[in-house]
Design a protein around this nucleic acid. Structure first.
Length: 503
RNA sequence: CGGGAUGUGGCUCAGUCUGGUAGAGCACAGCGUUCGGGACGCUGGGGUCGGAGGUUCAAAUCCUCUCAUCCCGACCA
C-alpha cells in the first residue's frame, strides 16, 4: 500500500481534533478504555509517564517539608456534610457504598446484602477525612504546621468522559496543610502553585499562566483558588494544577483547633493543592502532532530507541552487538537526574517498526546498520523535527552529547508551545470583537486566549458563558492594573482577565 | 434524567428493507521474497450475529421484551 505523505494519525488535528486526541492515545499504546464505564486502563507506556511525574514532583514536595501519608478511600457520608459549600460541590458526583457483601439472589445471581448503618462515599477529594485526623493531631501551635501529601485515586462520577482529561476514577496527588496563621497558609498556597508552574513548564514543557479563579470557579469551600492554565493546540485552556487557600472553613467544619502562644484557642488555617493524570492529557494536546504522541524528554518513559538494521541472510550479530554496546554506553549517561533510558527494537516488521516509535513519541530514534558500524556513526532522528531530517552523527559525539540533545528537544518543545500560545493570545476591548472571535469557533480553532476587562460581576461572567461557552480561566497575577471597560457591560474595570474555552 | 442512534471474529464495518449453510478490510500466526520512510505473496486460526422469548420448514434478518454502549443538552481536576 502506498502510504507515503500520509500522517500516522487519522484524522489530523485540523480534521477532527477530538478524534485525533483519542487516536494519539491509542496509537502510542498509552491507555485504553476499560469495560467499566468512564474508567480507563493505563498501559505501561502511559503509566511510566505518570511514574516520572510522581517521582519528580514528589521530590520537589519533600524539599519544601511536605511528608507523604495515606488516608482511606472511603469517607463516612456525614463527613462530607461538615462543610456546606463542599457538599454542594461534590454531592452530585459521589459514588456511594451502601452494602458490604454479596449474596445469591433468587435467580442465582449475586445481589448486594448487608446494608451499612452509614453509607460511605468513595473519596472525590480528602479534605474532610484528613481534617478529621488533623483535628486530633492538633492541640498546640507547636503541632503546626502539618504538611501532608498523598498520592491516590479519587472518584468523581462523570457524565461525559475522555481519557486522561476526565474519567470517573483518576490518579492524583492531593496536598493538605494546616497552619497557625493566615499569612503562613496563604504563603503555602502560593508556594505550591509556584512549584506546580515550575514543574509543568520545566518537565512537561507546557507554558502556563498563573492566576486566581473567580468566585464562581472556586473550589467548593475555598476562600481562594489559584491555578495554572495552559493552552492546548485547539486553543482551549486546560487547568494543569490548582492550589487552594481554605481559610478556616474546613478547620471549623472538622474542628481543627489549637492553643496559640498566648494560650488562646484558635482555628487553624488550611490549604489544599492538587495535580492529576489530567496533566498527561494536557501534555498530549500541547506537544503531539499528526504523527502521534510527542513526549518531552524529562518525563519520557524512554529517551532513545535503537533500531538495528537487520537483513535476513546476512550475519547480523555485529549489528546486534553494536546496538547492545551503544545501549550500555548511553545508559551510563545521566539526563535530568536519571540514567538515560534506552530501548532496542529488533522486531522484523519492516518500516512499521520506526513508525511505532514515532507514534509513541520517544524523543530519539537511532538507526544502526552496517554502514554506521563501518563509519562509527549513528543515524539519528529527533521526534521534535520532521522525520525527513534524520542525520548521520559520529557515535562518540552522540553518546557524549546525549544529554544536550535531549535538553535541546525539551527546550524546543517549550519554545514551540510558548510561541503558539503567544500567537493565539489577544487583547480585546470591544464586545463585538470578542463575540466575533468566539462565535464561529470549533474543532482545532476554539478561539484563543483573550485578555479583556471584566467588571467583576457574576452576571457578566454568566452571560458570556451562556452566549459563547467561554469562561474566565483566571485573573492572572501578572496582569497590570489599568483602567478599562467590562467586555460585557462596559462598566469600569481595573484589570484584564483571561478568557478562553476550557476543558 | 430528556432527545437520537448502534450492538455481527481482537478492531472497523457489510449483510437486515426483500428470511434460505457467517462475510470483507485491518490485526494475528506460519512460510517465502523484502528491510536506512509506513512492503508484498501464499497459507491458516478465530464469530452460539448483545441477551431472552415469539413467528416460521428455516431468523443476523420479522415481532415483543430486555440489557449495554455511543452521540447531543445542565457540572467538574
Amino acid at each position: 500500500m502506498g502510504t507515503k505523505n500520509k500522517t500516522a494519525i487519522t484524522p489530523t488535528r485540523e480534521e477532527d481534533y477530538a478524534q485525533w486526541y483519542q487516536e494519539v492515545i491509542k496509537a502510542s499504546d498509552m491507555a485504553e478504555n476499560s469495560p467499566v464505564r468512564g474508567c480507563m486502563v493505563m498501559k505501561p507506556w502511559g503509566y511510566a509517564i505518570w511514574e516520572n511525574i510522581m517521582n519528580q514532583m514528589d521530590a520537589e514536595f519533600k524539599k519544601t517539608g511536605v511528608k507523604n501519608a495515606y488516608f482511606p478511600l472511603f469517607i463516612p457520608l456525614s463527613y462530607l456534610e461538615k462543610e456546606a459549600e463542599h457538599v454542594e460541590g461534590f454531592a452530585k458526583e459521589c459514588a456511594v457504598v451502601t452494602h458490604h457483601k454479596l449474596e445469591k439472589g433468587k435467580d442465582g445471581k449475586l445481589v448486594p446484602a448487608g446494608e451499612l448503618a452509614e453509607p460511605l462515599i468513595v473519596r472525590p477529594t480528602s479534605e474532610t477525612i484528613i481534617g478529621e485526623s488533623m483535628s486530633r493531631w492538633t492541640s498546640s501551635y507547636r503541632d503546626l504546621p502539618i504538611l501532608l501529601n498523598q498520592w491516590a485515586n479519587v472518584v468523581r462520577w462523570e457524565m461525559r468522559t475522555r481519557m486522561f482529561l476526565r474519567t470517573s476514577e483518576f490518579l492524583w496527588q492531593e496536598g493538605h496543610t494546616a497552619h497557625a496563621t493566615k499569612q503562613e497558609a496563604v504563603q503555602r498556597t502560593m508556594q505550591m502553585l509556584d512549584l506546580y508552574a515550575e514543574f509543568v513548564e520545566k518537565c512537561l514543557a507546557m507554558p502556563v499562566i498563573k492566576g486566581r479563579k473567580t468566585i464562581s470557579e472556586r473550589f467548593p469551600g475555598a476562600d481562594d483558588t489559584t491555578c495554572i492554565e495552559s493552552m492546548m493546540q485547539d486553543r482551549r485552556a486546560l487547568q494543569a494544577g490548582t492550589s487552594h487557600f481554605l481559610g478556616q472553613n474546613f478547620a471549623k467544619g472538622s474542628d481543627i483547633r489549637f492553643q496559640n502562644e498566648d494560650g488562646q484557642e484558635q482555628y487553624a488555617w488550611t490549604t489544599s493543592w492538587g495535580t492529576s493524570t489530567r496533566m498527561i492529557g494536557g501534555m498530549i494536546m500541547v506537544h503531539s502532532d499528526d504523527d502521534g504522541l510527542v513526549v518531552p524528554p524529562r518525563i519520557a518513559p524512554a529517551h532513545v530507541v535503537i533500531l538495528p538494521i537487520i537483513k535476513k541472510g546476512d550475519d547480523n550479530t555485529k549489528v546486534l552487538e553494536s546496538a547492545k554496546a551503544l545501549k550500555a554506553a548511553l545508559q551510563a549517561k545521566k539526563f535530568y537526574g536519571r540514567a538515560v533510558e534506552v530501548e532496542i527494537d529488533d522486531r522484523d516488521i519492516g518500516g512499521a517498526r520506526g513508525w511505532d516509535w514515532v507514534k509513541k513519541g520517544i524523543p530519539l530514534r537511532v538507526e544502526l546498520g552496517p554502514r554506521d558500524i563501518a563509519n562509527n556513526t549513528v543515524f539519528m532522528a529527533r521526534r521534535d523535527m520532521p522525520a525527513s531530517q534524520k542525520q548521520s552523527m559520529d557515535q562518540e559525539v552522540f553518546i557524549n552529547t546525549i544529554s544536550e540533545i535531549l535538553d535541546s528537544i525539551q527546550q524546543n518543545l517549550f519554545d514551540r508551545a510558548l510561541a503558539f500560545q503567544k500567537a493565539n493570545t489577544f487583547h480585546i476591548d470591544t464586545r463585538q470583537e470578542f463575540y466575533d472571535l468566539y462565535k464561529n469557533t470549533k474543532g482545532a480553532h476554539n478561539g484563543a486566549f483573550v485578555f479583556s476587562h471584566w467588571c467583576g460581576s457574576r452576571a457578566c461572567e454568566e452571560q458570556i458563558k451562556k452566549d459563547l461557552s467561554v469562561t474566565i480561566r483566571c485573573i492572572p497575577f501578572d496582569s497590570p492594573k489599568e483602567h478599562g471597560q467590562c467586555i460585557c457591560c462596559e462598566k469600569a474595570s481595573e484589570q484584564r482577565v483571561l478568557f478562553a474555552k476550557a476543558y
